[in-house]
Amino acid sequence: MPDTVKLEVFRYRPEGEGAPVYETFEVPYRDEWMVLDALNHIKDHQDGTLSYRWACRMGVCGSCGMTVNGEPVLTCATYLEPFLPGPIRVEPLHGFPVIRDLVGDLEDFVEKLQRVKPWIIREEEKPTSEGEYLQTPEEMDAYKRYSMCINCMLCYAACPIYELEPGFIGPAAIALAQRYNLDSRDEGARERHEVLAEHEGVWSCTFVGECSIVCPKDVDPAGAIQRYKVDATLDFFRSLVTPGRSP
């Protein structure tokens, strides 16, 4: 095992050079270190101006997503070890404009997430006195997988379509729309359909499938999108043979 490992870190300083550069740092190598530990070592001991996001260090906050040797990963859950002997290239997530160094601008995702109304919509709330909304284990199983999303945006970074067509609503937002569409307590599918049935909703997707592969929580956004396409298509062809029914 080596004593040190080199990291080539993407640096973008808007007040400085204008164009991004790769800066090489040499950090101690430890078997138990994640890429995030190496970045923290750089920030604490070599260059305090290095900018990146992180919080929980345990793969639930979803803020430390970066591109490591070309793949979008959570840096808190990615060991240095498989990249030996290095150098390890650390870049911001693809598909998002870079504000500084490894920090991307995530406004676009947040705006799209709100557009699909990721909350339970009821036509009428039942009074509290009538008790809670009960669900069978099967009913919960229908959406549970999609509810595991931590909004880390690795799926957006893996999606070439999002990078090519920034208008595309994207994998996580559609998976979260499906998380509520498939919830037995929810009645908002029609409202979400307004957004999802647009060309920039599900139809921009060409099923590259990488979103589901990089997802650290096994949410399977690609599956959610294809299922929505199948359902929307069946509804459309049914509406053709059933007059008076709108797709």
Binding site: H199, W203, F236, F237
Partner: peptide, 13 residues
Amino acid sequence: RRARDPFFWGLFS
């Protein structure tokens, strides 16, 4: 406009 995508996707799949 809404009909175009599901129609062609149906033929595609």
